[in-house]
C-alpha cells in the first residue's frame, strides 16, 4: 500500500509538471487477483493505478509500440527487476532511447511489495549483478530438474506431447518484450521459411525458432508462459537456454544498456565446444 501510494503521487507529479506524457502501470482486473495494463495520461487517471503482488506481467513490451516514443517525450513505467533487464536489452538492441524512460521499480516477496531505488536504467546494475550471482534454487523449478534428468528420447517425447497442444496463437511471442520484430520470421511468406500449419512439425519449428531467438535475451519474466492458453511450460525452454549461455559465455541477459548481444558478438576466449 505504501509503495502504491508513493508511486501514485510520483505519477501525478510527473504528469502534472509535464516531465512524462504517460505512465504505464497496472489497474484492477476482472477478478480479485487479476491485474490489467493501464496507460495513464492525466493526473486524475493516476488514482486508478494499483501496485501489489498480483502485478506480475512485464509491461516493457509496450514501450516499443509503434510511434509511442517517436515524439521524444518521456514515459514512466512500472517494472520488476526482470522488466528492467528487458528494458536494458531493448536499449542495447537500439529499439528505444533509454533516456526517455523513467522506471518505477518494484519487487515483491510473498504479498509484500517494495520499491527499488533508482529511476534510470543505469542505476540498477548492482541489483542485477546480485541476481546473477544468486540464481534461484534448483528446487524452485522441479520440472526443469526432472527434464534434465531425462534421456534424449524421453525429453523429445515430453516436448512432443507438450507441443502437440500448441495452436499457434502466438500469444507467447506477442507478450514477450524481446519479440519486437515488426515482421516475425514465421510471418514471412516470400519465401515461407517456417510452415504456418499447426501440426506437429509446424509446432516444433515454431517453438524451436522462438527458443533460439531468445537465447541470451530471455530475462525469465514469464510473460510467455502465463500467456500460453494451452499451458505449455514455455519458461522451461528459455530458462534452459539462459543457463546454457551463462555457462558457456558468462552472459546474463540484460545487465546493462550497452551489453553486447551474446549471439551477435565474438570473443577470442569464447568456448567453442558446440562446433564439431
Amino acid at each position: 500500500m505504501i509503495t502504491q501510494e508513493k508511486y501514485r503521487s510520483k505519477a501525478k507529479k510527473l504528469l502534472a509538471d509535464g516531465s512524462v506524457k504517460m505512465v504505464i502501470g497496472y489497474s484492477p482486473g476482472s477478478t480479485a487477483d487479476r491485474r490489467r495494463p493501464l496507460f495513464v495520461r492525466s493526473f486524475e487517471e493516476a488514482d486508478q493505478l494499483v501496485l501489489d503482488s498480483n502485478c506480475i506481467a512485464n509491461l516493457s513490451g509496450y514501450l516499443v509500440t509503434e510511434g509511442l516514443l517517436s515524439d521524444e517525450k518521456r514515459v514512466a513505467i512500472f517494472l520488476r527487476p526482470e522488466g528492467i533487464r528487458s528494458l536494458n536489452i531493448l536499449a542495447a538492441e537500439s529499439q528505444l532511447n533509454v533516456d526517455q524512460i523513467i522506471i518505477f521499480g518494484f519487487d515483491s516477496i510473498g504479498r509484500e511489495v517494495s520499491s527499488l531505488s533508482g529511476e534510470h536504467a543505469g542505476e540498477f546494475s548492482e541489483l542485477i549483478s546480485s541476481i546473477k550471482e544468486n540464481p534461484p534454487e534448483k528446487s524452485s523449478e522441479p520440472l526443469l530438474y526432472q527434464i534434465e534428468q531425462m534421456n534424449p528420447q524421453e525429453r523429445f517425447a515430453f516436448w512432443k506431447e507438450e507441443f502437440s497442444r500448441c495452436i499457434k496463437c502466438y500469444a507467447c511471442r506477442q507478450s514477450c518484450p524481446m519479440c519486437y520484430c515488426r515482421r516475425c520470421i514465421v510471418d514471412s511468406n516470400q519465401p515461407q521459411w517456417v510452415n504456418t500449419s499447426s501440426h506437429t512439425l509446424g509446432n516444433f519449428e515454431w517453438n524451436i525458432v522462438r527458443a533460439f531467438h531468445l537465447a541470451g535475451r530471455c530475462v525469465g519474466c514469464g510473460n510467455c508462459d502465463r500467456s500460453c492458453p494451452v499451458n505449455i511450460p514455455l519458461r522451461l525452454i528459455n530458462a534452459r537456454m539462459a543457463a546454457e549461455v551463462l555457462e558457456s559465455f558468462d552472459h546474463f541477459a540484460g545487465m546493462s544498456t550497452t551489453q553486447e548481444p551474446v549471439l551477435a558478438s565474438f570473443k577470442k576466449e569464447d568456448s567453442e565446444t558446440f562446433i564439431l
Partner: peptide, 24 residues
Amino acid sequence: MRCIGCGSCTYLCPTCHCFDIQDE
C-alpha cells in the same frame, strides 16, 4: 490499447471461423 494482438481469443472461441489456405 493493451491488446497485444495474439490469436488466443479467436482460437479458443467456439464461433470464430476464419481460415487461411496455405500450400506446403
